[in-house]
Amino acid sequence: MQITVNGTRHRVDADPAMPLLWVLRDVLGLTGTKYGCGTGLCGACTVHVAGRAVAACQLPVGKVSAEVTTIEGLAAGPVQDAWIAHQVAQCGYCQPGHVMAAAALLARTDSPTDAEIDAAMAGHICRCGTGPRIRAAIHHAARQLREG
């Protein structure tokens, strides 16, 4: 099996049923993508497949047919900058998933409404209660994108 992650092609010797999450973490050593529930309920494992935010715990590696981007490969840009400007992270464990979801949202629209942000983040949990700063950071990043 071959998959492309962050621009690099990898031969993967694994059961095609193995969720992409564990291929990334345990086979390729890309530990920025987190396990939180394994059932698509928390968003900690969010990666981009062909640019769309996907729960890596729900995607068997054998079904991956497009390029994968993980938090390690996400180009530095306004989203991470906004996260740092707003000092969003606490324990930080949920943050790679939130950042990936926000980046996918902002790739679709550079002026998301609060309702659109809610919808994009509905599958995510932060037990540290960073939600208000996440919202502020997304608006901040959107502003940066609009102003170029």
Binding site: G32, T33, Q80
Partner: peptide, 16 residues
Amino acid sequence: ALPRPDMADKVHGRTR
């Protein structure tokens, strides 16, 4: 309010 030294790593998924 100081910038947290652990922030950038957490945001970029580098925290172990």
